[in-house]
C-alpha cells in the first residue's frame, strides 16, 4: 500500500468491522454476570448465580419461592441439550456415511447421470430451510408419521448429506487415483481397496465433513422448529421459545455457555485443519 493514510483508514474500518461482529457477543457475556433479576438491562452487581443455578449447583436459585432468583430452565435446558446432542450424533453419522459414499461414487465412476447428481446435490444446501421444513412437515403428517426426535434427525440429514459430500469431494479431487489402480492391479478387491487405500487417504476430509455436519446440526433452528412437534425440542428451538415468551436473565448464562462451546469447537476445527496440511 503506497498511501499510508489510506492504509490507516482501511485498518480503522476493518477493526471497526470486527468490533461490530464481536461486540454483541461480549454484551451477552457481560450481562450474564449481572445480578439484577428484575431488569437485566440495569447493572446491579457481579454474580455467578445464573451459572450455578443453571447447572443445579445452588440452592438459592432453585428455590421456587424466591421468584426473583429462581432459575426455571435448568431441567428443560438440559433436556434440550441432550436432544440436540443425540440428534447431532445420529445426523453426523448418517450424513457422513451417505455423503462419503456419494462423493466416492461421483469421483471414481463415470456414468451417464453423473452431472445430474452433481447438480442435484447442491439443491438441499441452497433450498431455503423454511421451504424444506414445511415440505417435511406436510410429508410426515401426510404419511401419518408422528413428529419426534426421528423426524428431526431425518430433517437434518436431508441437507447435511450435501455438506459432507462437498467437503469429501474436495478432498477426493486431490487424491491420486493411481494408488487405487495399483491396489486393484495387485489383486485387491474393490472392498479391500476402499478400506485400505481410499478411506485412510480420505480420513481428514471425512472428519472435516463430520465436524461441519455436527456443528450445523447443533445450530439448526428452522427445520427443527417445523418437524419437532411438541415433545422433544433442541437447544436452539428452546432458546427461540424463551426469546418469544419474554427473556429471563438466565438466558444470558445459557447463551454464554453456547458461545464458549462454539469457540472450543472452532479452535478444534482449526487445529484439525492445520494438522491436515502438515
Amino acid at each position: 500500500m503506497r498511501n499510508p493514510i489510506g492504509w490507516a483508514g482501511l485498518t480503522a474500518f476493518s477493526l471497526a468491522f470486527f468490533a461490530f461482529i464481536y461486540a454483541p457477543l461480549f454484551v451477552i457475556i457481560g450481562y450474564s454476570f449481572n445480578s439484577n433479576p428484575v431488569n437485566m438491562m440495569i447493572w446491579e452487581s457481579f454474580t455467578l448465580d445464573w451459572y450455578t443455578g443453571l447447572l443445579g449447583l445452588s440452592d438459592r436459585t432453585t428455590d421456587v419461592s424466591n421468584r426473583a432468583a429462581y432459575v426455571e430452565s435448568t431441567g428443560l435446558m438440559l433436556a434440550a441439550l441432550r436432544t440436540s446432542l443425540t440428534v447431532a450424533l445420529f445426523t453426523t453419522t448418517i450424513s457422513t456415511v451417505i455423503g462419503t459414499a456419494t462423493a466416492i461414487a461421483l469421483a471414481r465412476y463415470r456414468f451417464r447421470l453423473r452431472g445430474v447428481y452433481n447438480g442435484f446435490l447442491m439443491l438441499p444446501m441452497m433450498m431455503p430451510d423454511i421451504v424444506l421444513g414445511i415440505g417435511l412437515l406436510i410429508f410426515f403428517v401426510s404419511i401419518g408419521m408422528n413428529l419426534s426426535i426421528l423426524t428431526i434427525i431425518i430433517g437434518h440429514c436431508t441437507f447435511l448429506t450435501s455438506y459432507v459430500f462437498i467437503i469429501v469431494q474436495a478432498r477426493m479431487a486431490g487424491l491420486d487415483p493411481a494408488l487405487e489402480e495399483a491396489s486393484a492391479d495387485l489383486g485387491a478387491s474393490e472392498w479391500v481397496t476402499l478400506r485400505k487405500v481410499l478411506l485412510p487417504q480420505l480420513a481428514p476430509g471425512i472428519l472435516g465433513g463430520a465436524l461441519l455436519a455436527f456443528v450445523i446440526s447443533m445450530d439448526d433452528l428452522v427445520i427443527t422448529y417445523f418437524v419437532s412437534g411438541t415433545g422433544d425440542t433442541t437447544l436452539p428451538v428452546f432458546i427461540f421459545g424463551m426469546i418469544r415468551r419474554g427473556v429471563k436473565p438466565e438466558i444470558n448464562a445459557i447463551a454464554t455457555l453456547i458461545i464458549l462451546a462454539s469457540v472450543v469447537i472452532a479452535a478444534l476445527g482449526l487445529w484439525l485443519r492445520s494438522r491436515k496440511t502438515d
Binding site: 457477543l25 445450530d219 436452539p236 432458546i239 447463551a255 453456547i258 458461545i259 469447537i265
Partner: peptide, 8 residues
C-alpha cells in the same frame, strides 16, 4: 459460523 445463530 460455529456459534449459534439464535444467540447472536
Amino acid at each position: 459460523f460455529f456459534s449459534s445463530l439464535i444467540v447472536r
